[in-house]
């Protein structure tokens, strides 16, 4: 099967070195808002980077670690956003509940669609993921009375967090919201890291490396593809829910296949064989998109060129490129 990623087995860093990497990454993320303003950053941009980084890392569980291609993760991203939006708009003014419902909506559809696709492989799997994501897009687009149609779901704001009498104001302070997103990002990446070290995670990697051999070992491939797909949609829908909270609205473009493509390019741009690659890819891509679209009306061409250049010249992504250079 040709969906497997390039045969470059990631060399595990020595344990001490790995801790060093982790400390460096987290120190960077915590300190980022304090100095990045000098190079044109702003609070909402950092939050957006983290959110898309999380979405791309979620996708990468499937793309990089299980070796299955999804080009439809916008669906779960968007459903997460709408789920959160529905709660705040129609039900209750609570941020944690909004996030939970966003996750629930995205993941339930991930489980259902995953069941319909799990027996397909290769390019046909990718094709079905595109088609299923478009179902969600058209529903959001057409179901005016509930979703607000083309204009999107508006008229809600994220709620401050209440811990007893102590209130954290994530609503009006973008910087506080960034740290709130970072906290959720921390929990999610910890869970993803634990997953990849678990037997289930090892099985996913085995499916990527050699699906036929995995089957000979008695692993039910289809069920594991299903599970990996569902888990991957779960993390992407967390990101979607946070995206709705960030923007205080949810609209059909969050479900559109362009977002799917963007999430995939982030994973590939950063390096899909590396756990942190998609975050780096998201940072570069979101930053570039923000910068280019403020500079020229022809930003679409530039984004397109980024896609082409990455595919033709940096197929291993930035981290893979750096590693090979230094090796």
């Amino acid at each position: 099967m040709s969906t497997t990623t390039a045969p470059q087995t990631a060399v595990a860093a020595a344990p001490g070195q790995r801790w060093l990497h982790l400390v460096a990454i987290w120190a960077f993320l915590i300190a980022a808002p304090l100095w990045m303003g000098h190079i044109g950053g702003y609070d909402a941009l950092y939050s957006r980077i983290l959110i898309f980084g999380l979405a791309a890392m979620g996708l990468n569980l499937l793309l990089g670690f299980t070796g299955m291609m999804s080009f439809g993760h916008a669906a779960y991203f968007g459903l997460g956003a709408y789920g959160a939006g529905f709660v705040l708009r129609y039900w209750i003014h609570s941020t944690p509940l909004a996030i939970l419902c966003g996750i629930l909506l995205g993941t339930v559809f991930g489980v259902i669609f995953g069941a319909l696709m799990m027996r397909r492989t290769g390019i046909y799997f990718a094709m079905l993921t595109i088609a299923f994501s478009q179902i969600c897009y058209y529903f959001a687009y057409s179901w005016n009375s509930v979703t607000g149609g083309y204009d999107g779901l508006r008229g809600f704001t994220r709620a401050p967090l209440h811990f007893g009498s102590y209130v954290i104001d994530i609503r009006d302070n973008g910087l506080v919201f960034y740290y709130f997103v970072l906290a959720i990002f921390f929990v999610c990446t910890a869970l993803m890291g634990a997953l990849l070290r678990s037997p289930l995670g090892r099985t996913m990697i085995a499916l990527r490396e050699n699906p036929q051999r995995a089957r000979f070992l008695g692993i039910p491939n289809e069920q594991h593809v299903w599970i990996a797909f569902a888990i991957s949609t779960l993390f992407t829908s967390v990101a979607g829910a946070l995206y709705a909270l960030l923007n205080n609205f949810a609209d059909p473009t969050a479900l559109y296949y362009v977002i799917s493509g963007n999430i995939v390019i982030m994973a590939v741009l950063g390096g899909m064989l590396n756990f942190w690659g998609p975050l780096l890819g998201a940072a570069v891509f979101v930053w570039l998109e923000d910068y280019i679209s403020s500079q020229t009306v022809n930003w679409m061409s530039f984004i397109g060129v980024i896609f082409v250049v990455v595919v033709l010249f940096f197929p291993r992504g930035l981290l893979g490129f750096v590693k090979r250079r230094s090796a």
Binding site: T5, V268, N298, F307, V308, P315
Partner: peptide
């Protein structure tokens, strides 16, 4: 140039081309 590579690359490539042509 991407026939021999995993499918993700050909998809991303045509995706990027679609942006470029539309903008042109």
């Amino acid at each position: 140039r991407v026939y021999a590579r995993p499918h993700v690359y050909s998809l991303l490539l045509t995706f990027g081309l679609s942006f470029i042509i539309q903008d042109m």
